[in-house]
Design a protein around this nucleic acid. Sequence first.
RNA 1: GUGCCUGUAGCUCAAUGGCAGAGCGCUGGACUGUGGAUCCAGUUGUUGUGGGUUCGAGACCCAUCAGGCACCCCA
Length: 427
Amino acid sequence: MKSKIQSVKGTRDFYPEQMAFRTWLYGKVREVSERFGYQEWEAPFLETLDLYAAKSGEELVKQQAFVFQDRGGDEITLRPELTPSLARLVAARQAQLGKPIRWWSFGPFWRYERPQKGRSREFFQWNIDLLGPDNPEADAEMAAIGATFFRAVGLEAGEVKIQVNNRKLLERKVEELGVRGEVAAVFKLIDKRDKMSAEAWEGYATETVGLSAEQLSGLKDILSNRELWRESESLVRFFENVKALGVAEYIEYEPTIVRGLDYYTGTVFEARDRDGEFRAILGGGRYDNLVDAVGGDPLPATGFAMGDMVISLVIEKYGKKPALAVSPTQVLVTLFDEKGAADALGLARDLRAAGLNTEIYPQAAKLDRQLKYADGKGIRLVAILGPEEAAAGAVSLKDLAARSQRRVPRAEIAEEIRRSLDSGRGS
RNA sequence: GUGCCUGUAGCUCAAUGGCAGAGCGCUGGACUGUGGAUCCAGUUGUUGUGGGUUCGAGACCCAUCAGGCACCCCA
């Protein structure tokens, strides 16, 4: 065996079967995005390092971005996320863009990380953002879009949930504990809670973050108070809106959600499967300062991102993966011998002209071979054109799914195929 | 970037330091113009890669690459 060139670490190959699923997922993303009136857009895959320098979490850029020098010596980054690009595009044409801006996008991103389940170095991500309004109605719309997507792919509220919190509320509560200027450290502490043992976490809280016993106890009260949202006018309205939008069953308050990225400013959320088996399915929130941070005028914004890997695992786990037709072929034209080749090619041409996806068996072969091929590839209809049919000016149309066959005059074959496809659609 | 686990046929996996195997798949036939089932036959390897120990290595040791898990971070 010859030595094979390996693929780049952390990348995935999309054979037709995987590509069909990716396309299906993209279709669901499009369907839901457009249902809420969002426009599709796209940014370059390459951006300057400067774009990310001040904005994203420092770790994300410094340690996890693919950065290289171009031939002119400029620092170029393979985009690790989309939101800074969004802010850049919006800032560049801020005056002429009508508000609110409702945009969505689905494309590839790169992060230089250790690959593991639900995480690779090259992945696809759905981004959807609403810029303009700074009210809880906009936040609720985002959560509703996420929930509507789950419904669209068949995931029920008993299987996935969207957990919500508000950074301003949390910040206020933390400050009430008498923690000054160390809010970011406390947020990090909160984020770690599920990942450490209770003792280790408390040790980290008192020793590293420097909380007093009293403050720690107060913090624990905050994090276990599932009714805390009632103290935030913004969250109260958020939950009212979510109810009105018909997705309340998917959404719940979770005091430990803070999100990792530094640019979030208000309501934040992330979705998980109810068993907590996987990492977050999607994550997002309000980021009101980002547009002016890249040189635009201040513009409030909210949005979220969903990677393709975790959602795929969740869809698979709950048995919601659809049976997808991998071959686009609607009808296979048989080939018996070289003498009949011109006739078969002519039939294929006519069927294609009639708008049918038509494939011809590429060489003369026994009929059972050709039928096996069609069966294996999931092609339902086979147009059999052998010496007998040719002599009669007809074609035999076999429906592999219905196990039926009938002889049709050559002139009517395209119409007959169309009828068969329509009748088989429901079953 | 840190720690741990794993790597054998296309796939899933066996093989006490002693002849590299099974199931599935694939190919052909039973069936010269009729598919999924069944039966029969056949096919599949530089044991991830490179070194080392040993009379002898798929197994032990080192390195390296890839995958997985936990950190870190996050989609």
